[in-house]
Design a protein around this nucleic acid. Sequence first.
DNA 1: GAGCACTGC
Length: 695
Amino acid sequence: MTSLQFWKPGTAGPGSTLDRATQAEENVIQSAPLSGNLSIQSARARLPIAKHREKLLYCIEQYGVTIVVGQTGCGKTTQLPQYLHEAGWSADGSVVACTQPRRVAATSVASRVAAEVGSILGDEVGYTIRFEDVSDKERTRILYMTDGMLFRETLVDPLLSRYSVIMIDEAHERSVYTDLMLGILKKIRRKRPSLRLIVSSATLDATSFLEYFTSGTPASSSGDEAIIVSLEGRMYPVQTAYLQEPAPDYVRKAAETVWNIHLQANQSLGEQQGSGDILVFLTGREDIDRCLEELTEMLPSLPRNAMRLRLLALHAGLSTDEQLAVFEPAERGSRKVIVSTNIAEASVTIEGIKFVVDSGFVKIRTYNPTTALSSLVTVPISRASATQRAGRAGRTSSGICYRLYPERAFNSLPVTTPPEITRVDLTTPILQLKSLGIDDLMKFEWVTAPPAESAVRALEGLYGAGMIGEGGGLTIVGEKVAECPVEVNIARMLFSSKEFKCGEEILTIAAMTAVQDVFVIPEGAAGALAELERRKFTAEEGDHITLLNAYNAFTRYGRSSSWCKSHALSFRAMSRAVSIRSQLKKYMQRFGLPLESCQGDAKRLRQCLVSGYWRNGARWVADGTYRSVRGNQVLHVHPNSVLFTRKPRSGWVIFHEMEETKKTQIRILTEIDPDWLLDYGHKYYDKRTGTSVSS
DNA sequence: GAGCACTGC
């Protein structure tokens, strides 16, 4: 047996590394039923947050902004809104809101709190997420919602006047909407100082949030009245172990480490002690599959008396059933090994993990404003992420985290991951800020300002698409598009469908391009069969109409999951497309856009597509790649495209998106006539200036 | 001839 070649610097108990690992355990759907109101109340009183109740209420009363630093298990997400409710903050029709970055968190926390309050979900306690509003406009006092939904509400009610307290939970995750909300709330508090704000964060960010809320014009009413409150939580100690030298191949090292953990735990500890599952953090599906392959090859050499290993993959591309498998408890005498992407860092919580193996890498999306190109790059994680990952080993008992890098490498990691707002295309956020009346982006107080080039790029794009005028203000169509929950180019397409008389079909296409992984193509022989199934939907013109065909077939054949299974479609994705379509349909009706059918006239439909995708034109070249109209960039067709193997007759296409992975790839293509790029691309621009633009 | 970090409206 090979020994574990790790150096263990010591235990990181509460008070050292791990009290920085704050993450809402409230994210987990609680399976233990609480019976009877008495036991609920005593369970509430036992939570670590309970003894800080009066202090918290005092701070919220006295300070405009309270930054709450709370560790896993302290109960802030479930208890704080209840304390506020009990203390009268929800009297006189006021609402206490608590935002979450993810839908599941908003719904599961709401149902737990409803049970604690003794209310039916949607009555006194409710939630609001996209497509689901389980709340009562009159009666709901505590409202859990996604931060995206709260942002949307500011478009309708800019002062968020129905709320007395707003708690932005998981603020350390720094999602785009969290950052936008913090900026807007700072502004709202100037106009409405009575609004109380709670920012729930990890230790590492707390001071930066404090500085953010106390800075600004000295005379402002919101300045100088923020405070940090620290809560301790419930967490078992987790030891951290580092490699002495960096591993040349972290995937292989991860497999070896899992193997060694298993053998060592098996040998040195008894049956009870030796159990405990292993969670491995890698970057993507390719790594995960390779790691699992290596482990599978080792299995035959497992000693006869050793526990068995149950090997599982976890990433977002898996079906719901496959994802659920990681929650099944391991059988007696076996140990689960879950090899996961970053999904297990915050989005998915698995109980019973005793060992974490951390590769130290993550794939993140970055955006290059000069080329307008998104790329997915593998980068070292931040110290906050490393701490968060380690914490996954200490949820149900003490644990060990094996970091596949030396301690000196940990010390040189960035403290936090750059906020998402600095890494994305700003077209939609800027359009929405303008819709809120924030025209001067230089004056908007970003928690972290995005790169100026990204803002400039987005403004140019909005101007070119006719969403903003020369003065930088919104045009009439821009105001409408800002309300639509889709990307600007897709919204533009919906609006011009009136002219091309194809609203019915464009609506479906808009919905289908908004969902990912519509086609499910498994590995091996089943994959070949699935390919044949998919071909039944294939349209000669390209992917957009192929998606349209798939959607129409889905609705025609009863919207069933079994039908999807036999036709290589994802039921989850298709159902989501149905929801998005019906939501977008309401917007079209509101804006008076007719839902006419093009009656099979694919030409008109494709012309309408060009009106949205006019910036995404590309020309086929002899080696099978494309060149972008803007920038003459080399583009490779994504293998999922129906045009992957075929040259379009005209030699020209528009595409939905491009992304840089190993190569620059374009996804969702449709053949066009190149003249359409000029005819339908610059319509709004032409009307206003009388000139055409060279791209 | 070959690929899919994760959210959210």
